[in-house]
């Protein structure tokens, strides 16, 4: 409660075609927090992120970034205001090199020394990317592509980082590595909204969590409390 809210969703509703995908969603992420959004497939997790970054316009409700409304704005305007979105399915540019993918991440920054510093930080975080910096994005393994997607979003130096299922389809070793990286980012003071199907892991590293079910938030609270909640254990953590 003490830290300032970076991102607030207030009573957001959204349609995906004819499907009422989000029904009155309210979420808050505060400075320096990792907040996770968990729930089964089709619950509306990715839709929530798409609404925040402007890929989908909410039909009702408000989205505020540091108090400033961003709902209804275009994705490139929202990006300029400080939303960094590593989208579902990584969506790296397959025919751009690793280096070029990162350069596109820093598209809005024109100061070359700042870009160089951010790139150095990304390479420190993911040495694998540094090794492959000349390679086309499309030739990377799934795990490396995910690192690149996160690295690219970090190049924006966003006020909040939206991560959509970063561990999807990755080998267990890489899942561990990625969650460690998220903790590193957390220690560095980054604010993160994490969408995960790997609920147990997500609740381990997050401070707070929201549980989404068919477009409605059914539970919310401290990640620790939620991971001990029998109902949630049953539904999302593979029983007891």
């Amino acid at each position: 409660m003490n830290a300032a809210a970076v991102l607030q969703l207030q009573n957001v509703q959204a349609f995906y075609g004819h499907i009422h995908a989000l029904k009155d969603i309210s979420i808050e992420v505060r400075e320096g927090e990792i907040v996770t959004l968990i729930g089964s497939n089709g619950a509306g997790k990715s839709t929530t992120l798409r609404c925040i970054s402007g890929l989908l316009a909410p039909t009702e409700g408000k989205i505020l970034l540091r108090g400033q409304p961003i709902h209804g704005k275009k994705p490139y305007e929202v990006a300029a205001l400080g939303i960094g979105h590593a989208p579902e399915g990584r969506k790296i540019f397959p025919q751009l090199t690793v280096e070029e993918n990162l350069a596109i991440g820093a598209y809005l920054e024109s100061d070359k020394t700042i870009i160089a510093r951010r790139k150095r930080e990304v390479y420190e975080l993911f040495p694998r990317l540094a090794e492959r910096h000349k390679q086309d994005g499309g030739t990377l393994s799934g795990g490396e592509q995910q690192m690149l997607a996160i690295g690219r979003a970090l190049m924006q130096d966003p006020a909040i980082l939206l991560l959509d299922e970063p561990t999807l389809g990755l080998a267990p070793v890489l899942v561990e590595l990625l969650f460690e990286t998220l903790q590193t980012l957390h220690k560095a003071g980054k604010t993160i909204l994490l969408v995960e199907q790997n609920a147990w892991h997500a609740l381990q590293i997050a401070q707070r969590a929201y549980v989404l079910q068919t477009g409605i938030i059914t539970h919310q609270g401290a990640a620790k409390d939620l991971s001990n909640n029998p109902e949630i254990k049953q539904a999302y953590l593979g029983g007891d």
Partner: peptide
């Protein structure tokens, strides 16, 4: 680079502020 990024995936490019 931006032209190539938009050619490959315009919607993702817009997430980077393009």
């Amino acid at each position: 680079k931006a032209i190539r990024a938009v050619a490959q995936d315009a919607s993702t490019a817009s997430l980077m502020g393009i």
